[in-house]
């Protein structure tokens, strides 16, 4: 019995709680939106919200996995920036370079993740500090590669960001949603997925039970690196060029949907579907505030308050740094 839980009375501490809370918030915002403006509920606007969620969704998917193991990855923003620079810089407008470069940068994302995971395991340092350090190093490398926007990509590269499926549905957002569904399936149905939860719930117990915790941590950070790299490629597709600080805001932004979606920073609880809904919530909230004519400045306040509201409802099973 969780003492804190019963004492506080209204704390929610069940695995599905995140999804329930986010769905409720989404519904409330949606109703407000329809009441406020006729154009809010149009399919055009909703498809727009859907499309704009892609970048945040991609990076948050990886972040969720790191957080599920009780860790965190603060290098995602730098990886996004470096990958975006390399993608447009190396392709440099050459159609034939697109496939090798994209494969190369995705492999780089995996490799950076392997370094993060390796340092966390071998050095025994908290992931927060390790990824803060590697994040600084990677940002420095991105700046050494170029101090401003660099390279260009051929026509058609923007399909990832702006491509449409039949019915005007965004290709990138749908691809991302399928990636989330696949991840949710793998987390629930594979051994590795269950081990991720076990490692996050109690790493010591998981090791004693003979679970391959070091390999799980390695795997998780590699996947986080991969998702960040994919986000970098997406941003090049969207903006047409790589920039040295293009990912900077994503580091902390990627945490919001994760925690709003009910994944506990202490690890072991939550899931990717909650995160996806958390991303839609952020996207919907920004769109709604635009309709309400709220200045972009106060939109920040609203986002901060949503984080506070959401995390105050959940009860963390224990505090972490």
């Amino acid at each position: 019995m969780n003492l804190t839980h019963s004492k506080l009375g209204f704390g929610i501490n069940r695995s599905r709680a995140g999804i329930i809370v986010v769905v409720a918030l989404l519904a409330i915002l949606f109703i407000i939106g329809i009441a406020v403006s006729d154009r809010f509920g149009t399919s055009r606007n909703l498809l727009n919200i859907y499309e704009q969620s892609t970048g945040l969704a991609l990076v948050s998917l990886g972040q969720t996995l790191a957080v599920l193991t009780g860790g965190i990855d603060l290098s995602v923003g730098s990886v996004i920036s470096l990958v975006s620079m390399l993608t447009s810089g190396l392709i440099s407008g050459d159609q034939s370079m697109v496939i090798p470069v994209v494969i190369g940068v995705l492999a780089l994302g995996l490799a950076i993740g392997a370094i993060n995971g390796g340092v966390i395991i071998v050095m025994g340092v908290h992931p927060l500090i390790v990824t803060l350090g590697t994040g600084a190093i990677i940002q420095g490398i991105a700046l050494l590669y170029g101090l401003g926007p660099i390279g260009k990509v051929p026509k058609g590269f923007d399909y990832f960001a702006y491509g449409r499926l039949p019915g005007g549905i965004s290709f990138g957002a749908t691809f991302t949603m399928l990636l989330f569904l696949l991840s949710a399936f793998l987390l629930a149905r594979t051994k590795a997925g269950r081990y991720i939860y076990a490692t996050g719930d109690d790493p010591h117990a998981a090791t004693l039970m003979g679970l391959p915790t070091t390999r799980i941590i390695m795997l998780v950070y590699m996947l986080t690196g991969f998702c960040s790299a994919l986000t970098g490629v997406y941003l090049v597709s969207r903006f047409g060029v790589g920039q040295p600080y293009t990912g900077a805001n994503y580091t902390l932004a990627s945490i919001t949907p994760v925690v709003v979606g009910g994944t506990m920073l202490a690890g072991g609880r939550g899931g990717v579907i909650g995160t996806l809904l958390g991303v839609y919530l952020v996207s919907l909230l920004n769109n709604l505030l635009n309709f309400l004519g709220v200045s972009t400045h106060l939109q920040l306040v609203a986002q901060g308050l949503v984080i506070i509201a959401a995390v105050s409802v959940y009860v963390e099973k224990r505090r972490i740094a």
Partner: peptide, 23 residues
């Protein structure tokens, strides 16, 4: 009082303060 992790609590106040400042 709400057992929020320090990382999140201070991240949220950081964003709120930033918004007020911008406004």
């Amino acid at each position: 009082k709400r057992n929020v992790s320090p990382f999140l609590a201070t991240l949220a106040t950081m964003i709120v303060l930033q918004g007020f400042r911008f406004a």
